[in-house]
């Protein structure tokens, strides 16, 4: 256990000492934040207002709260995964620098080495993700705050789980990479592509039915939906209090992926948690198994 803690500590230290790795991890959330606040925010606002049935009026605070919640949930869903890929680059860097070779000539178990990469990456990604949560809370506080303490806790839990998921996925992929070029190619693809497939950039409900079915097989989709649900829970409560009919609230929820279905069957919040937690456990198991099978020997 002491060895595990010491290697994890070393990995975390290296992440924060390596300015390149640290700033490249921060770049995705910063770009998204700027993009959302300067451009996408207005698009979301206009499309939300235009989507309301005629004759309905909602207070500007609720509209802004909805848009803010949608923006921040998208940002957090993407951030938890893309930052994990950046922070997990150490695994590849250790191969190129020879540090991995140095570890393999010691009696330390391969499973301890692989788990220490996982946990170090998880901790660093969580630190950045929770900074992003804090920034999101500040932004929402200015636009329209409807969170209860419970909503905040659930959102923190969602971010934790999606980060665990992102770290597990990045660990499995990075284990097969051996050069910095491969790592940056994968990082670029993930940064550009993940936001689309998890429904962060555009709601999955706006995709064609075939693609929706395909995306419903990806656990990340449910992670995004959980974050979105808990970011907007307070706003939906407020809508109800303002007398907006349940059907309309429900259709808004559907349009922004708060209600997801798997082959026409609605997936409950508990179901989403089960899918996400199960996939995390399976992915970590696969990651450790890959490391044990690879044995570090050629």
């Amino acid at each position: 256990m002491k060895t595990f803690i010491a290697i994890t500590k070393r990995n975390i230290q290296l992440f924060f000492k390596d300015k390149g790795m640290f700033f490249s991890a921060l770049i995705t959330p910063i770009i998204l934040l700027v993009l959302y606040t300067t451009f996408l925010g207005n698009v979301y606002h206009d499309s939300f207002v235009s989507a309301l049935p005629e004759g309905f009026s909602i207070s500007e605070k609720i509209i802004n709260g909805t848009v803010g919640g949608q923006l921040c949930s998208s940002l957090l869903a993407v951030c938890c995964v893309t930052v994990a890929f950046c922070s997990n680059l150490l695994m590849v860097q250790d191969k190129t620098s020879g540090a991995r070779k140095d570890f393999l000539v010691t009696p330390v178990k391969k499973s301890i080495l692989s788990l220490s990469y996982y946990f170090a990456s998880l901790i660093t990604t969580l630190i950045i993700s929770y900074i992003a949560v804090a920034a999101s809370f500040i932004y929402i506080a200015f636009t329209g705050w409807f969170f209860t303490f419970g909503d905040c806790l659930l959102l923190l839990l969602d971010v934790f789980l999606v980060t665990m998921f992102g770290t597990a996925i990045s660990s499995i992929i990075n284990v097969f990479l051996s050069t910095n070029g491969q790592a940056s190619a994968v990082g670029t693809i993930v940064s550009a592509g993940y936001g689309f497939i998890c429904g962060a950039y555009m709601p999955i409900s706006s995709f064609g039915s075939g693609l929706q079915k395909v995306l419903s097989f990806l656990p990340g989709t449910y992670g995004t939906s959980l974050i979105r649900n808990h970011s907007l829970k307070g706003v939906f409560r407020a809508m109800g209090k303002e007398g907006i009919p349940e059907e309309i609230v429900s259709s808004i929820k559907k349009s922004i992926d708060c209600n997801l279905s798997f082959f026409e069957k609605d997936v409950s919040i508990a179901g989403m948690y089960i899918i996400l937690i199960s996939s995390i456990l399976i992915l970590i198991g696969i990651y450790v198994l890959i490391n044990l099978v690879k044995k570090g020997r050629e």
Partner: peptide, 8 residues
């Protein structure tokens, strides 16, 4: 320190 920990 980190390398020493690899040997317990």
């Amino acid at each position: 320190y980190s390398r020493a920990s690899l040997y317990g």
